[in-house]
Simulated scan of single mutants.
Amino acid sequence: MRGYYRIRILICSFLLALTVVGPNGKTWAAERAAWRDPQHSIIVDAYELNTIDWDELLKDKRIAAFISKASDGLPESFSCTGDHGGDTVAHCRTMWRKYAVSRELFRTRRLVAKANGLLWGAYHLGRPGNPVDQANHFLDYADPQPDELMALDIDGLDVSEFMSLADAQVFVGHIKTRTGRYPILYTNNVVARYIADHRDDYPILSRLPLWYARYRPDISGTFPLGNWDGYTMWQFSSGDNCSEKNCPYRVAGTLTDIDVNVSPMNKVELARVWPQGNLLPAKPEPAPMIIAKAETCNSPQPLTPISLEPILTAAVAVHRPAEINELNYQDF
């Protein structure tokens, strides 16, 4: 029995190491509330309905970049002729006016942000419809410059509401053809895990730098690891977890519905890599796990079986704060 307990102690020690040390030797504790580290850059991202007082926002010197929503699905029809998919001509004209005003707002925000030294980026919200037409729409709308970041936003796997992953591959490939750069991928844990689990089907998406949406104080052991070793940006605050009484990070000059992100880099480091454009290195296929039958030195009898579940549960419960001790976590 002494050997049995020695093995249990070794396993516990190993699991403890896993709960403390993350990929590349980085401690998971460092990821908890990363936005509190003054060396980590803050990035604001907004869409056309977010109100912004620029004089107030620019007082926050931790804000290094501003990303704006550019396009959403396919372009609106200026002429409002032909098939509107059941829509009326009057509503089509209303949507065109909204589209035109949003485009002017996008351009104004870019001028203000860049004139005040902020890095600039734009994203496209992927919808059902021809992905090449959507990519052209994004490039025509955003007119991304070589020093500006591009992103594709895939909010879910429901292909009746969002761009399919197969179409997303076509979209990013067309962006690469026209600009010489790939966009980064904005998504949540559900979509990221699906891409990782099917990375042979999505060899480009699974290698795009990750803009990760998760409204928790901690993202230890997510992304998912095994495909992404880390995040380019982490969207940690939005209207989902920010209220007047409690908010992870308040951006002056904005309301509680503004999206806020953190980068694991300081402002100088972030500026150096900001435009992105390359794929991440390909991940090797995981090696098959081989379990050898354990025998004692003096007897062919196997050791007493050990259940890892109570050991893992105890290790996580002791060495991770109670509020993030979630084996079955949710994404939002």
Rank of each mutant, 00 (worst) to 15 (best):
D87T: 01
D87S: 04
T88P: 01
T88M: 07
T88L: 03
T88G: 01
T88K: 01
V89Y: 07
V89C: 06
V89R: 01
A90C: 01
A90W: 03
A90Y: 06
H91C: 10
H91Q: 15
H91P: 02
H91D: 15
H91L: 15
H91Y: 15
H91F: 15
C92V: 01
C92G: 00
C92A: 07
C92H: 03
C92Y: 02
R93C: 01
T94P: 00
T94Y: 15
T94M: 11
T94N: 14
T94E: 11
T94A: 13
M95G: 00
M95D: 04
M95T: 04
W96A: 00
W96C: 00
W96E: 00
W96Q: 01
W96D: 00
R97W: 07
R97D: 08
K98Y: 11
K98I: 11
K98Q: 09
Y99E: 06
Y99H: 08
Y99A: 08
Y99C: 08
Y99Q: 05
A100T: 05
A100Y: 02
V101Q: 12
V101M: 11
V101I: 13
S102Y: 00
S102N: 04
R103P: 00
R103C: 03
R103W: 06
R103H: 08
E104V: 05
E104G: 04
E104Q: 10
E104Y: 04
E104D: 13
E104T: 05
E104S: 04
E104M: 05
F106N: 01
F106I: 00
R107L: 14
R107P: 00
R107A: 14
R107Y: 13
R107M: 12
T108L: 14
T108Y: 14
T108E: 15
T108I: 11
T108W: 09
T108V: 12
T108N: 13
R109P: 06
R109Q: 11
R109C: 09
R110V: 06
R110L: 05
L111D: 15
L111W: 13
L111N: 14
L111K: 14
L111R: 15
V112K: 14
V112N: 07
V112P: 02
V112A: 09
V112S: 10
A113V: 06
A113K: 08
A113R: 04
A113M: 07
K114F: 10
K114V: 08
K114N: 12
A115T: 13
A115I: 04
A115M: 13
A115E: 14
N116Q: 13
N116P: 11
N116H: 14
N116T: 10
N116Y: 08
G117V: 13
L118R: 03
L118Y: 00
L118C: 06
L119P: 11
L119I: 07
L119S: 12
L119H: 07
W120S: 10
W120V: 10
G121M: 11
G121Q: 10
G121N: 12
G121I: 09
A122L: 09
A122K: 07
A122T: 10
Y123W: 08
Y123Q: 06
Y123I: 06
Y123G: 05
Y123N: 05
Y123H: 09
H124T: 06
H124S: 05
H124M: 10
L125T: 08
L125S: 12
L125P: 15
L125Y: 15
G126Q: 03
G126Y: 02
G126E: 06
G126P: 09
G126T: 02
G126S: 05
